[in-house]
Computed example of a mutant assay.
Amino acid sequence: MDYTKALNIEPGSAICYSGYRKGQRPGVAYPSYEQVREDLLILKGHWKYIRLYDCGPHSETVLKVIKKEKLDLRVMLGAYIEAEMNNFGCPWGGTYPEEVLQENKIKNLKKIEKLIGFAKQFPEIIFSLAVGNEACVDWTDHYVPVESVIEYVKLVKSEAKQPVTFCENYVPWLHKLEPLVAEIDFISIHTYPVWEYQNILNALEYTKSNYYSVAHKYPDKAVIITEAGWATNSNGRGIDPGNVNEDLQDIYYNELVNWSKEANILTFVFEAFDEPWKGSPDPKEPEKHWGLFKEDRKPKLVMQKILETNQAV
């Protein structure tokens, strides 16, 4: 199904954006107006759509910058819902005291209400809404039952006019999330070949397989990709260091973008900038190295080539 009709948008390039720099992290310190403005001026020449993960201060600043600076950017805005159930199968934590789970339910409802509020406040900028991110996959540390996600979707749809989705790894869409599909306006999947031990030679085919396994299961529902990318560094935690570098990122990015255009699939590349706050303190932690730009905003190889090409035109 054509995503442009389901989302009421025109075709365009898309990227995930999180602007936290050295010393900044959610709940502690946030990028300033000028820092966000700098980032968005970098992004606007290459991408039309950006994805934001939550309704916190960072996302509010992004929305204000886009509006005040009159930038040609549209936003998929998410609400980052937290654990409402223990997930004993999560290898890096996922169990909490019962009082924390109950507190999270209250927090999640407030986040959903804030999502609705932003949707009403910035209708010309926000083109779609996501009620959560990787909250139902087996390995998540912030597990939320499918039934709760469905209730959040219904609440958002009752109040906001934008199309509503839920962002999740491709696997749960094949079985666990079947009841959710009927409630959302379009499906959003994540696909990471390098996290699943694939090399660059079969990476795109693996991404295609992930995508079409979901798209063919739900032919009457638009399916987009809200995360797909290639890291550039690793300490060996989950990713072979020999399987990630800037050359491989350049190859995967171009293959991914070219296929997405040919197949008419909206694909949010993960991600704009490296995020030093993520993962362990190890500087080679792979979670920190998915950006097309480094933390200091210098372009990596893939963007160097794109910038050189644009300058030559």
Rank of each mutant, 00 (worst) to 15 (best):
M1Y: 02
Y3T: 09
L7A: 03
N8P: 07
E10C: 03
P11L: 04
Y17P: 01
S18H: 06
S18D: 12
R21E: 12
G27K: 05
A29L: 13
S32G: 02
Y33C: 08
Y33N: 03
R37C: 11
D39E: 04
L40K: 07
K44Q: 15
H46T: 10
H46A: 10
K48L: 02
K48Y: 02
K48F: 04
Y49P: 01
Y49F: 10
Y53V: 05
D54Y: 02
G56E: 12
G56W: 05
P57D: 14
T61V: 00
K64N: 13
K64H: 11
I66H: 07
D72N: 14
L73A: 05
L73M: 00
V75L: 10
V75Y: 06
M76R: 00
I81K: 01
I81D: 00
E84A: 02
G94E: 01
Y96K: 08
E98V: 12
Q102C: 11
I106Y: 07
I106V: 15
L109E: 13
K111H: 12
E113I: 04
A119L: 01
K120Y: 13
P123M: 08
E124Q: 15
I126R: 08
A135D: 07
C136R: 04
D141N: 15
H142G: 06
H142V: 10
V146N: 09
V149D: 03
I150K: 15
Y152N: 07
K154D: 08
V156T: 08
V156M: 06
K157S: 11
S158N: 14
E159V: 15
K161P: 09
K161Q: 15
V164N: 03
V164E: 01
C167V: 14
V171R: 13
K176G: 00
L177D: 01
L177I: 07
L180Y: 14
L180K: 02
E183I: 02
Y192P: 01
Q198P: 01
Q198H: 14
L201R: 14
L204D: 08
N210G: 08
Y212V: 06
S213P: 02
V214Y: 09
P219C: 05
I224L: 06
I225Q: 00
E227P: 04
G229N: 00
N233Y: 02
N235H: 06
G236P: 00
G236Y: 04
R237Y: 10
R237V: 11
N243Q: 12
V244S: 06
E246I: 03
E246Q: 09
I251N: 09
N254D: 12
N254Q: 12
E255L: 13
L256C: 08
L256Q: 01
A263F: 07
T267R: 01
T267D: 03
E271R: 03
E271L: 11
D274N: 07
W277M: 14
K278D: 09
K278I: 02
P281T: 10
P286F: 11
E287C: 11
K288E: 11
W290G: 07
G291D: 07
L292Q: 05
F293Q: 04
K294S: 12
D296C: 06
K298A: 15
K300I: 07
L301K: 13
V302T: 13
M303C: 07
E308S: 15
N310A: 14
Q311D: 15
Q311A: 14
